[in-house]
Computed example of a mutant assay.
Amino acid sequence: MALPRDRSTDLNDPRVRRTQAALRRTLIELVQDRDLSRISVADVAERAGVSRSTFYDHYRDVHELAEAACTAMIDDLIDAIPEPGTREETTDTLLTFFALLAEHAGLYRSVLGAQGSARVIDHVRRRATVAAYVGALRAATGGDGPSPADFTDGVPHDVPAAFTAGALIGVATDWLQHGCPCSPAEMAALTRPLLAALYHEDGRTRS
């Protein structure tokens, strides 16, 4: 198998970004029809219209491509982590969160499951912790406060934020592994009171 070249100097090349985006889109399409474990480099390359050597210029294998695809989507998905607030705000945000997971359930199921990617799981955990921490600060100040971009190196040790992140990952993973038996709306309705109770006890919710 060919080894990928050093890609650190390629990140600003629009051709590289286009090729990587095309490979990520292709994998997302393929995983709708079959398990990630049954998708080969040849499958992705053929569907994307590139050679196998081009694939290996960017990714070591399908697993690394899956990590890249999920990490990119998770950066958008984590923006939907609920900020403590009114019942309507929290439910709407949770609905978005679970709907985005359901849209690419096959891929998330593969990388968040028992045989999944530790890198992706850690990425979700860190981003979710930041989102929960920032949301609590904004709630406590009536909407003013820092943004997630202010915490690129993580947040101070914060038990409610870490608990929220872990709880959401656990609930979402269990839901995905069971084939999404409830709708995103039902998941939002079931999860909202649990998070509301957490932040009520923590004393950081706004009325």
Rank of each mutant, 00 (worst) to 15 (best):
D79Q: 14
D75A: 14
D76E: 14
I81Y: 11
T96K: 12
I81E: 03
I81R: 01
A99H: 05
L77G: 02
D75P: 01
P82S: 14
L95S: 07
E83G: 09
T90S: 09
A99W: 02
T91Q: 10
T86E: 13
E89F: 03
T71A: 03
D79Y: 01
T96L: 10
R87Y: 10
T91I: 15
L94K: 06
G85M: 05
E89H: 14
D92I: 09
E88W: 05
T86Q: 07
E89I: 02
T71F: 04
D79R: 11
T93R: 15
L100P: 01
E83C: 06
L95M: 00
F98Q: 07
T96W: 01
E89P: 00
F98S: 03
I74E: 01
L95Y: 11
D92Y: 05
L77F: 02
L77N: 04
T90F: 00
A80C: 08
D79M: 11
L94D: 05
E89R: 14
L77Y: 00
I74D: 00
P82I: 12
T96E: 13
E88F: 05
A80M: 08
T96G: 00
P84Y: 04
R87K: 12
P82F: 09
L100E: 12
M73H: 10
L95T: 15
F97C: 04
L94M: 07
D79V: 03
P84C: 07
R87M: 08
R87I: 10
T86V: 04
D79W: 00
A72Q: 12
D76M: 02
M73P: 00
I81A: 14
